[in-house]
């Protein structure tokens, strides 16, 4: 067969493209896979649940199949007083996060401790489980791990939920879905940059802060403040409620959209919300005809607004 230069070309192309893929896919994958999860990574995935975007359990991103985060001060089994503890309640059939399903991605020490000490792999999705993040020291270094409190302490999801009143329940997993679905991350990044920027928005994250989380939703186009540590800057739920309903109530120059539609049809007392009347009254206020803006309804416990505010306040 005669010499054909395209045959040489095709082989060179394979070599060039293959080398490029080796360097940009294989090498980073190996490097990133060797990173151990930090406490933050364990807390994040336990609070968020399996996926923060489209998934089997929640194809239309309504917040179904997500865990509830609770703060408790009594042992759900014995009723005895305990140190204030944050527990992640997975009722039956709620999918576990990636780190629980595949302990390997938590990194060497956290996965070993979560399995041996925390009995993480004893958890059963069909029964539900309650998880807690613990820390212990190994060779002088603090190592976080996941404890399956259902196995180690007999905390059932129902009993644990019953120990937390509405104020101590946070729908962070559902809130992350709202954050992704409503595209908050198109303007608010979740990544303080490793430059001067972090003096204003807080410390940039570390290599192991994301093991098990998807999507990370860092954002790329910052048209608004970074939110990575927003819960530490501003912990006022009332401010958040006003700001989400109509950002211009608290910041006249804001270009953030109104998220009033996330309140749904009724407020926290079950009264219907009349949006047209509210907007008309607000227009009067904005035009200077009235002194005070109309009252903002409190979001209902099962509303999307409540979940989103829980998520934002817990970005610390």
């Amino acid at each position: 067969m005669a010499f054909r230069e395209y045959k040489v070309g095709a082989r060179m192309f394979g070599l060039a493209f293959g080398s490029s893929m080796f360097i940009t896919l294989y090498m980073p994958a190996v490097d990133i896979a060797g990173v151990s999860a930090t406490t933050s990574a364990l807390e994040r995935q336990l609070a968020f649940g399996r996926v923060g975007g489209f998934s089997y359990e929640d194809p239309f991103l309504r917040g179904h199949g997500k865990p509830v985060t609770v703060d408790i001060v009594e042992d759900p089994k014995t009723g005895a007083a305990i140190e204030p503890t944050r527990a992640y309640v997975y009722p039956a059939e709620v999918p576990f996060p990636s780190g629980v399903r595949h302990p390997r991605i938590l990194g060497e020490l956290p996965s070993e401790l979560s399995v041996s000490k925390g009995r993480m792999t004893d958890a059963d999705e069909a029964q539900g489980a309650v998880f807690v993040v613990r820390e212990t020291t190994r060779g002088g270094i603090s190592v976080p791990y996941i404890e399956n409190a259902t196995a180690t302490r007999g905390w059932t999801p129902a009993a644990t939920l019953a120990k937390a009143d509405d104020k101590n329940q946070a729908f962070i997993g559902k809130g992350k879905i709202m954050f992704v679905r409503e595209g908050c991350w198109w303007c608010h990044t979740l990544l303080p940059e490793q430059t001067q920027d972090w003096q204003y928005f807080g410390a940039p994250p570390m290599l192991g802060d994301f093991n098990g989380e998807s999507p990370t939703a860092f954002g790329s186009d910052r048209k608004a403040p970074d939110l990575t540590h927003v819960g530490s800057r501003n912990s006022s739920r009332e401010w958040m409620i006003l700001h989400f309903f109509n950002p211009r109530l608290v910041q006249p120059h804001s270009i953030m959209p109104r998220y009033d539609y996330m309140w749904g049809d009724v407020d926290a007392d079950g009264k219907p919300i009349d949006y047209d009347a509210w907007r008309a009254a607000y227009n009067e206020y904005e035009a200077g005809k009235t002194i005070y803006p109309p009252e903002v309804p409190m979001p209902a416990a099962d509303s999307e607004a409540r979940a989103l505010i829980d998520f934002v306040l817990n970005l610390k």
Binding site: F210, N211, T216
Partner: peptide, 13 residues
């Protein structure tokens, strides 16, 4: 990352 549920920095990268 979506087909195989890859997470964390692998997903971001």
């Amino acid at each position: 990352p979506e087909f195989f549920q890859l997470t964390g920095l692998t997903e971001a990268y």
